[in-house]
């Protein structure tokens, strides 16, 4: 049975903090709560990557998190999109010169999956509106991956 298309649009997201300062994390939660309320579209945070369509990642990758984000990525079922929220996750931002920061998130994801689909959301931290726009872009990418575009 083919599910209604609306089911595809109810994105379930798993939030991974790869070493972020919390700034992006609270804006992600703000996007879920009543003022911005993405839950009205059926987007919600889930507690396991195995249930997720979208991985929301924030923060520069610390040495201890590098193997873990690879593991989390592998646990997420296909098709999947990664939303990288914030400057640090995209470029490592202000933390560029440390012994414990290994690099931006896409670098590690490309090591295990060269075709990884990433939506980059810049900002320090991005506004909830920007995060919602990123989620909308993730829809389009997922539709493309499912061959519905």
């Amino acid at each position: 049975m083919k599910l209604n298309k609306n089911f595809d649009r109810a994105l379930w997201a798993f939030h991974v903090n790869t070493g972020s300062c919390n700034g992006c994390d609270i804006e992600i939660v703000a996007a879920l709560t009543p003022r911005y309320d993405v839950e009205r579209f059926g987007i919600k945070l889930v507690g396991s990557p195995r249930h997720a369509d979208v991985l929301i990642m924030a923060g520069p990758v610390t040495r201890a998190m590098a193997p873990r984000i690879k593991r989390i990525y592998n646990q997420t079922p296909d098709p999947k999109v990664v939303l990288v929220v914030g400057n640090c996750g995209n470029t490592t931002g202000v933390y560029y010169e440390s012994y414990n920061i290994l690099g931006p998130i896409d670098h590690f994801l490309k090591q295990i999956d060269p075709d990884v689909k990433i939506v980059h959301i810049p900002g320090c931290p991005p506004r909830p509106e920007a995060i919602i726009e990123g989620a909308a872009k993730a829809w389009l990418v997922l539709e493309e991956l499912r061959g519905e575009a």
């Binding site: 470029t91 490592t92 560029y96 010169e97 440390s98 012994y99 920061i101 290994l102 690099g103 670098h107």
Partner: peptide
């Protein structure tokens, strides 16, 4: 000893 752990991502890339 520390040098090999420092990553200057902006200068060297990743």
């Amino acid at each position: 000893k520390l040098e090999k752990y420092i990553r200057n991502v902006h200068d060297e890339g990743v």
